Computed example of a mutant assay.
Amino acid sequence: MAPVPGVAPVAAAAGNRTMAAAGAILIYAVIIGFTDNFVKVIAAEGGLWQFHAIRSVMALALFAVAAPLLGLRLWPRNPRAVAARSLVHGTAMLFYFGSLAFLPVAVVAAGLFTAPIFVLLLSRFAFGEAIGPFRILAVALGFLGTLMVLDPGEGSLSPVLIAPVIGGFLYALGNIATRRWCAGESAETLVAGFFGMLGIYGVIGMAVLALAAPEVPGGAAGFVLRGWVWPSAGFMGWTFVQAAGSLLGILMMVKGYQMAEASRAAVFEYTILPCAAFWSWFLWGEMLGGRALLGIVLIVAAGALIAARSRA
């Protein structure tokens, strides 16, 4: 990944607070695993673009209220770096949320969690960081687990299953950018930029759909193609839950990436897989098959091995 024009790559901060980063990202995983299970409820009547637009307005409004009370610094020190990072992470989330209407959260998260693989590859080949044979082996193990969770069958991946993997690559770019381009920014600045970019995407998407006027399937099948519809109380309520939960969760995730190198912090995000699977079972009674559960075990084991080697 080439540096953003006009933005010098930021050197790694002295020391890696690995365990503190792990704690912050675990909080993120528990919250996001819960809130993302309700996207399919939102998708039954609303659209992806309207969801992002309204959720961003809600999240930024919460920020506007909290900023003076908590002394938050929202304006970026380097607007171009924050905008570039927000663009990459925001695009990744379009692929992620677009898939949630059609697949279980744990399966979509598994596709997204090719990101640590891309983080390590980019860290090695783009920035020359040493990653070591044990971490390479662990990533291979995690990749095998990811394939088991995705369970393409028939030897091929459908476009719906590929979409979270594309999101994973973009997510990896955004995670590296968090540390290298935006190390001097506050976590709240980065989160505000993230929601602002998704809000812009939402408005653009609704405008394009209003002009194109495509035929929209009913229910969750029309999530990506559905433009503006008059929102119900249920849609607004669950979107607010998403906004507040995502705000807190992503804030914790950003703090985790600021406390440790991306190649270290990324492995702890694997905890979202068992968290998402637990909430899917607790809320909807959805159970993953034995193959998928074994895949999650392999992914978590890979994360533990990488964390151990990072501390060493």
Rank of each mutant, 00 (worst) to 15 (best):
S86Y: 08
W279N: 03
A67L: 13
G245Y: 12
L87Y: 01
L161N: 12
G47P: 06
Y96G: 10
F127D: 08
A302C: 07
V57Y: 03
A12L: 12
A43Q: 07
R180Q: 07
S123P: 02
V267P: 01
W75R: 15
I117Y: 02
M19H: 12
G174S: 08
L273F: 08
G168Y: 07
G184M: 04
A302V: 05
F278A: 15
I204G: 05
N78I: 10
R291A: 09
G199R: 03
T178C: 06
G142W: 00
A21P: 01
L170V: 05
L161I: 09
A101R: 14
A243P: 10
P164A: 07
W230A: 09
F127Q: 04
P5D: 13
F223Q: 06
T189L: 12
G205D: 07
G145C: 13
F240Q: 06
I31D: 12
F102P: 02
A302N: 09
V139S: 15
M236H: 02
F194G: 15
M253Q: 14
E188M: 10
L144N: 05
I42W: 06
I162L: 15
G256W: 02
G168N: 06
V65I: 15
F51Y: 13
L157V: 08
A115N: 05
L144F: 12
F95R: 07
L251M: 12
A20Y: 05
V139W: 00
A130F: 05
W279L: 06
A21T: 00
A244R: 09
M253G: 09
V30Q: 01
A20D: 07
G90Q: 07
M19G: 09
V241Y: 04
A312K: 15
T178M: 10
G132Q: 09
A115Q: 03
A312Q: 15
G218L: 13
I306T: 12
A21F: 00
A233E: 11
G245I: 11
M252R: 00
A207G: 09
L112H: 03
R179G: 00
V203H: 06
